[in-house]
Amino acid sequence: MIADVDQCASGPCKGHNSVCSDLIGGYRCDCPIGYNGDGDNYCYDGHPCPDEQNVCSKNAICGYNFIQQRLECSCNKGYVGDGLSCVDVNECAAEKDYDCHPNAECVNTEGSYFCSCKPGYKGDGEYECKEIKACDSSPCRGRNAVCGETDGAGFTCSCPTGFHGDGVNSCNDGVSCPNGTNVCSKDATCQYNTERGPHCVCKQGYIGDGITCKSIKTSKLDLKPTPKQQRPMSSHHKRKITYTSSHVITIDQ
């Protein structure tokens, strides 16, 4: 009886990645799972050619042409050539090759392009390019301030009706100080005028600088006559001491 010879021992399958199966009196070449080809001459996985065969451009891929039954190089998208040499396509050269917003410009890149909004506009360049307006950056810092557009991409800041200020830095309603600056006494209100701006004023019946306010009654008690003022006086030298809310003492003789 003649012993069977391992037909795969000589490596008859020439396809890269081919798998040889020894059969009785012969062999079979197959491609492994995930690969395509006849097994005898090639097994291709859809990725670049084997290193020893990959003569394609760095901007190309190696694929199998089933019609011509051979491997061939094809330039990647964004490039043109025979696959061995591939050059960049300037998509911006022809309007039909790019899709940008009407207010955007096409910028060519290696193998591709991108859209950039024209000066004076903002957006993604492809779907949106909105006109940039001066008030978009909220230049009026005053609380309650109103920004208005002017010609030449300018703007103005103003306070709404019932508010006072320069509009740029402040708009005060004349009753309460802006948040974060109300240091007035609980017995004072914050008022506004063009000379001083927001400032504290003690309520009626109180005196002080607005930050500290004391009751007029309490202030009178604090201003008791000195012992010298309490000495007996003759009837024709009697004096009347009057205390006012401004701490001014009026003496009638």
Rank of each mutant, 00 (worst) to 15 (best):
T212R: 06
D136M: 08
G174V: 06
H237E: 13
V89Y: 06
Y127G: 04
N172V: 01
N103V: 01
C147R: 05
E126R: 14
Q7W: 13
D51K: 14
I132M: 07
K130L: 11
I216T: 15
K240R: 13
G205N: 01
C184T: 03
P102F: 11
T244P: 00
K130S: 02
Y121A: 06
G165C: 02
N108Q: 12
Q229I: 08
Y127K: 11
A60R: 03
D166T: 02
H247K: 14
G25I: 09
E105D: 14
N17W: 12
N54M: 06
M233W: 08
H164M: 09
G46T: 01
K203M: 14
S215M: 08
K203T: 10
G120H: 09
E195K: 12
D51A: 15
V183P: 00
G165V: 05
C92I: 09
P198F: 05
S74C: 01
H237A: 11
N65P: 00
M233L: 15
C75R: 03
S85P: 00
S245V: 12
P198N: 05
C115Q: 08
A9S: 07
L23R: 12
V89S: 02
R143G: 00
I24T: 09
G165S: 02
H199S: 05
K96N: 01
H247Q: 13
I33P: 01
G162F: 12
R196F: 04
R196E: 06
H101R: 13
K96H: 05
V89T: 12
P198V: 09
S176I: 15
R239M: 10
D209R: 09
I67A: 10
G11Q: 09
K58M: 12
G15T: 00
D82F: 07
K238R: 15
V87I: 11
I132L: 11
C86R: 04
V80M: 09
T181C: 02
V183E: 13
D173Y: 05
D252C: 03
Y27H: 13
V80G: 01
S234D: 02
P178I: 03
D30R: 13
I2M: 02
P160V: 03
G46F: 04
D124P: 03
C106H: 05
S246I: 08
K203L: 15
E95C: 02
S245F: 14
P12F: 11
A93G: 02
G197V: 07
V248G: 00
S18V: 08
G148K: 10
Q191E: 05
D222K: 15
S234C: 07
C13K: 12
T244C: 00
P32C: 07
P232H: 11
N144G: 01
S185A: 15
D82A: 07
S245M: 12
I211F: 12
P119G: 01
G205Q: 06
D38E: 03
R28L: 09
D22L: 11
C13W: 14
I24D: 04
A153G: 04
S245I: 05
A134N: 07
V146F: 02
S85C: 04
G81E: 03
P32L: 05
S21W: 09
S245W: 13
T150N: 09
G39M: 13
D38A: 01
C75N: 02
G142K: 10
D187L: 14
G154T: 07
R239I: 12
